[in-house]
Structures are given as structure tokens and as C-alpha cells.
């Protein structure tokens, strides 16, 4: 049941990406082109999603545990560190270069593998590399951050 529900929720999410137009990189780039011929429509994707999610999450406040899992796993970190600036900065540049973020990349690669495969594989490689402890400590930004962290400690 847990797996079937995860599969169906994945389907639902992906249909949302298709309906909204988020799956189309050219449309995403037009949305990101605020100072050009701006296509503001995709702002409403975030609007609709945040509206439903904030109400929905609140309605779960009294639920003791999830239907198919032993507990809720909700991020507890509240610190703002260098990685929280550097990571999203790199992500934003990549997103702005191509117009694909991770969710739409998965939906798009199955629909038109030929045109999206290069981006998709490079994205997986980037994820893999960022999780490697040996390279993580060698990233220039990472070492600056770790150095600063040592000083603060």
C-alpha cells in the first residue's frame, strides 16, 4: 500500500507539472525573464501549490502518525549556513541556464528523452558528487564554509 500510494502521489505531482507548464523549459525561462518579455503565469504554480500545501499541512497537525509510516520526518534544522546560500545560488544559475529543476527534469526526461537526457544525467552526476564526502570537502565553497565553521566553534 505504501508503495502504491507513493507511486500514485508521484503521478499526481507529475500531472501537476504538466498541467501547469512547469515541464516546459522554454516557458520556465520566459517566467525567469522578469526584465524581458515576462511570462508571469508560472508564479501562480508556486501560489497554488503553497496555498494548498499550507492549508493541507495544517489540517495534519492533529494526526499522530502518517498512514503508512511510523512517524513524520520533518526537517528540524533552523541554522543558516554557507551551504544554504551557496547551494541554492548554484542551483539558481543552473536552473536559469536551462529552465529545468529536478522535478520537471524527471517528468521531461521520460517524455522526450533525446532532448533532456544530457541535462538529466549531468544533474544525477552533480547530486552524486555533492554527496561524496571526499569531494564535498574539496569544493572551494565547502572548504571556506568549513574553515569559517571551525573558527566559530
Amino acid at each position: 500500500m505504501k508503495l502504491l500510494s507513493a507511486f500514485c502521489i508521484g503521478l499526481l505531482f507529475s500531472f501537476g507539472l504538466i498541467i501547469s507548464g512547469m515541464i516546459n523549459p522554454a516557458k520556465v525561462l520566459a517566467f525567469l525573464d522578469v526584465l524581458g518579455a515576462w511570462d508571469a503565469s508560472l508564479a501562480f504554480v508556486m501560489g497554488g501549490a503553497v496555498l494548498v500545501t499550507s492549508i493541507g499541512y495544517r489540517s495534519l497537525d492533529n494526526q499522530v502518525k502518517p498512514l503508512f509510516a511510523s512517524g513524520f520526518s520533518i526537517p528540524t534544522r533552523t541554522d543558516i549556513d554557507g551551504n544554504l546560500i551557496a547551494g541554492p545560488a548554484l542551483f539558481g544559475i543552473g536552473w536559469g541556464l536551462v529552465g529545468l529543476c529536478p522535478g520537471p527534469a524527471f517528468a521531461a526526461v521520460s517524455s522526450s528523452p533525446k532532448s533532456v537526457l544530457a541535462f538529466f544525467l549531468a544533474m544525477l552526476l552533480g547530486m552524486y558528487l555533492a554527496r561524496m564526502p571526499w569531494i564535498n570537502s574539496k569544493l572551494p565553497l565547502g572548504s571556506v564554509i568549513n574553515y569559517r565553521r571551525k573558527i566559530h566553534e
Partner: peptide
Amino acid sequence: QLIGGLLVGLGTVMGN
């Protein structure tokens, strides 16, 4: 695409 993909992968994992 290769540069963008790499940055998206690295950046999203670094930034959680």
C-alpha cells in the same frame, strides 16, 4: 545543458 545539470545537481544537494 551539461553545465546546468551539474550545477542543479550539486546545488540542490548542497542546499538540501
